[in-house]
Design a binder for these strands. Structure first.
Length: 617
RNA sequence: GCGAGUGUAGCUCAAUUGGAUAGAGCACCGGUCUACGAAACCGGCGGUUGAAGGUUCGAGUCCUUCCACUCGCGCCA
């Protein structure tokens, strides 16, 4: 978009100039930005600077507003013909309205391949931690969030021209994995026919076996339980100890490269990831084997990481363990256990250094459960203290934990794998696809439906897109930080503020354009006359700014809200303004052009969210 | 105990980061198709923004004190 020609940019620049002219020195720090009007009757944009300026100048807000309006329309700024005479309202709001021609020019300005979004030229990339799966564990609904939100944030950055590295930090190392391996090997399970469900059971059993319930024992004694109960708990403690010893031995064999162990371990990863990629493919996320960089890939760096902290005197011994302390809080971060073993935080430090330095990122984003807030705060602060967050050219990498809320059960308690009532991610996706296919098939049976007569395979593909759209949009459209109660019916609803609603608007747009065919004049000028056209047009103009804001704030929900608005305004336009049935060919062609731009924005926006946009449904 | 997060319509969420009469969807009640696609549109019902103070032209948003719920807090990942 050319800043000289673009009418909105000209008004924005003029607003800044006018505020300076009226305020002089007092203008510094006063927000001269144009805001979209709260209501259509207030105009297109509002300038709220008069109130803030009046306070600093010690004048009446309405008087300042009058001066501001005069300054804005002074011949030097050349806004005559771009906006109508400003109206002053309330305490001193300046309501601005674009002239129809200016609006048409602004629309034409964004009607290009990039839809007005200029690529950001930055020398470094962005790394996004996504997915968060653990080897030998089934993906459950909690993984939906990290996978879908992470992938969409990645798409947002890609859309504004950034290089993005998706990183899947698999939990593929450590005691739990060794325990599972030991459990499988000792039961002589056939690794060739292994599936994830069997693996998951083995993982859970190994965990249960090894969990010593010391607290249970203490409580039993404190509560004067009978000797039988205490003996039972003591036995449990002992066998848990035995299981842990066995697991430790298994881990040692794995670490030392024991061929059988390594083969079995690789098979474990293979079986797990096959399922993970099935889910990722169905979800349409760009998460592939090249994103895989599990905890195990950093295992040889851990000793050196700890060493570096010790040498820099950032890590000190405490009760046998090595800890990093922070000035502003009591809680230290453990990076090495008393027995010499490393911890979660140690691996994360190694991974973070890799992501900033090797992947060359000026921003590293962790899309991980919000409950790990404190952990990431520690890791990030430690990373900054030791200087790993600074790039060779001196740029400080931004480290962000995009913590998403917990998925709760009907009892408002977090869904736990062990609760049994937990929903496997694949079951959820399948339910959505089934419902989508059912809805599409029913509609296709009606003779008038554009999908009537399509082969079942095509209807199934559309149904899949609809069902997945519902799931993804439901997860993306809210504030990601908030917990939500899992509700299958709500997640796969197709009406109202949902993914399929957006798809439906898109399909109607496509249908109009297909029917318009060759008769449409692609170079027709925009003509914005009806109120419905005006509302749609003004909203479309905000697409580039919305995209930038969504990417920079890591809020996919902003893009969702915007696209929902576009779909809604289009639907109103569609029922109020005939397009193909309009006699006047000038108006018809202008409307077709508006339809095309709307279709392009919706298609591009849905693509950025990672939601499919079928041309018929 | 310490730290963090969240409280908005019956339910699920907004509110352009301090702006105009707090808006949408679902649900409920009405009205629109022999069709530029009714997965839609138009209208109605629904609010002491957890509570009380404070800051100012102006507060859901900022400050203080409470209340409720959730999460985290040294050798798991």
């Amino acid at each position: 978009m050319n800043a000289v020609q673009d009418p909105v940019a000209r008004v924005e620049a003029a607003a800044v100039a006018a505020v300076e002219a009226v305020g002089g020195d007092a203008a510094t720090g006063v927000d001269a930005a144009l805001k979209p009007s709260a209501k259509p009757e207030f105009g297109d944009f509002q300038l709220n600077a008069a109130m803030a300026l009046a306070k600093k100048l010690g004048r009446k807000p309405r008087e300042v507003a009058v001066d501001l309006a005069a300054a804005l329309m002074s011949p030097a700024l050349g806004l005559k013909g771009v906006i109508a005479e400003p109206e002053i309202a309330g305490p001193g709001f300046l309501n601005l309205r674009l002239e129809p021609d200016a609006l048409a020019i602004a629309l034409a300005g964004m009607d290009d391949d990039r839809l007005g979004i200029e690529p950001e030229m930055k020398p470094h990339g962005v790394t996004i931690d996504v997915c968060g799966v653990n080897v030998a564990k089934q993906m459950h609904v909690g993984h939906l969030r990290s996978t879908v939100i992470g992938d969409t944030v990645a798409r947002l950055f890609e859309r504004i021209g950034r290089t993005v590295h998706r990183q899947n930090h698999l939990g593929d190392w450590g005691l739990p994995i060794a325990m599972t391996l030991h459990s499988l090997l000792s039961r002589k399970v056939d690794f060739a026919t292994l599936d994830l469900d069997t693996l998951n059971v083995a993982y859970r059993d190994a965990q249960l076996e090894a969990r010593g319930d010391g607290r249970g024992l203490a409580a039993a004694i404190a509560n004067h339980c009978g000797p039988h109960r205490i003996a039972e708990l003591e036995t449990q403690e002992e066998s848990a100890g035995a299981a842990q010893t066995a697991a430790r031995e298994a881990l040692v064999r794995l670490q030392s490269g024991d061929a059988n162990m390594v083969t079995a371990w690789k098979r474990l990863i293979e079986v797990t990831m096959k399922e993970v990629y099935r889910a990722c493919d169905l979800l349409g996320t760009k998460i592939a084997p090249e994103s895989e960089r599990g905890e195990s890939s950093f295992r040889d760096e851990l000793a050196e990481v700890v060493d570096t902290f010790v040498r820099s005197e950032l890590a000190v011994e405490d009760d046998g363990a090595l800890v990093v302390r922070f000035d502003d809080r009591d809680r230290p971060m453990l990076i090495r256990k008393r027995d010499g073993g490393f911890l979660y935080a140690t691996t994360d430090l190694a991974a973070l250094r890799y992501r900033v330095q090797e992947l060359d990122s000026d921003e590293v984003i962790y899309v991980v459960d919000a409950r790990q807030r404190d952990h990431f705060r520690d890791v990030f602060d430690a990373c900054r203290k030791i200087g790993w967050s600074t790039l060779p050219d001196g740029v400080e990498s931004k480290l962000v934990h995009l913590g998403f809320g917990t998925v709760l059960g009907a009892d408002k308690k977090p869904l736990k794998t062990r609760s049994g009532a937990n929903f496997k991610l694949m079951d959820l996706l399948q339910a959505a696809v089934d419902r989508g296919t059912e809805a599409v098939t029913i509609r296709a049976a009606e003779p008038h439906a554009p999908t009537h007569g399509l082969p079942p395979s095509e209807l199934a593909a559309i149904g899949r897109a609809v069902g997945i759209a519902a799931i993804k949009y439901a997860d993306l459209s809210g504030d990601s930080a908030r917990d939500y109660v899992f509700d299958l019916d709500r997640m796969i609803a197709f009406e109202g503020d949902t993914g399929p609603y957006l798809q439906y608007a898109h399909a109607r747009l496509c249908s109009l354009l297909e029917k318009a065919g060759d008769e449409a004049d692609t170079d027709a000028s925009f003509r914005i006359e009806a109120p419905e056209e005006r509302r749609l047009a003004l909203l479309l103009l905000r697409y580039p700014a919305t995209m930038q804001a969504a990417a920079h704030s890591l809020e996919a929900s902003r893009l969702c809200r915007f696209l929902y608005g576009v779909a809604t305004e289009f639907s109103s336009f569609y029922s109020a303004c005939p397009v193909l049935k309009t006699e006047d060919s000038g108006i018809r062609n202008a409307r077709i052009r508006l339809v095309r731009l709307t279709r392009n924005v919706l298609r591009d926006g849905l693509g950025t969210l990672g939601i499919g946009a079928p041309t018929r449904m």
